[in-house]
Design a protein around this nucleic acid. Sequence first.
DNA 1: GCGACAG
DNA 2: ATCTTGTCGC
Length: 235
Amino acid sequence: MFVRQGLHDWNLTPAEAARLQERLAASLSGGRLPSPLRLVAGVDLALSGRDSLVAAAVVWSPADSSVVEVALARKPLSFPYVPGLLSFREAPAALEALAALRSEPDLVIFDGQGIAHPRGLGLAAHLGLWLEVPTVGAAKKRLCGAHRPVRDRRGSKASLFLGGRRVGFVLRTRPGVKPLFVSPGNRIGPAGAARAVLRCCRGFRLPEPTRLAHIAAAMAKRGLSAPEIERKLLS
DNA sequence: GCGACAG
DNA sequence: ATCTTGTCGC
């Protein structure tokens, strides 16, 4: 899919990275949920060995719940894991995998926060600046923000507030399991982000695009080749 | 100083 | 995230 180039460098110090986030957050925009939603991409990464990351991008079709395409990318680790600076660690590999996709998804879901971030620029929001389609963050844990309890029914949600502003929703994608922290990345709003994620859920806690990307990344980590992984996911 | 802290 | 055994439930 189309990915912008050269917005800024990734090899920065933690202090520089935090300052850059505050500056970039100002360029984020809202928007409506694309309709129809034909193809949705999901991205997830896994540690490959002790010094590299493998990113997996899976394109999925909501219409028939089928996998359309899988792309992988492996990059050496160049940034430590620091809460709040996750994008600087995962973005290079994630962007490379997305750029390798032949199809053009209408939306991309990431395993992490969108604008529900201390400086308003979580993984999905940051990466959204390189893409021309809406991005959504669907994290398994809370990074920041406060919310009311969420009822135990599929689709139930509670607004996630940060600094007096609603930055997303805590969404129950499935009864009996912990809710997801959904927040818009770029080119979409909180409601659209939550609707998109719920629309991609098929009985599991995680939306299919991200769930499948997680499986693909885990297989790549174990040494399986891209063709083998795609073959297994397509079946 | 004491918690909280995406993956 | 990753390290790890058994265990509860459909």
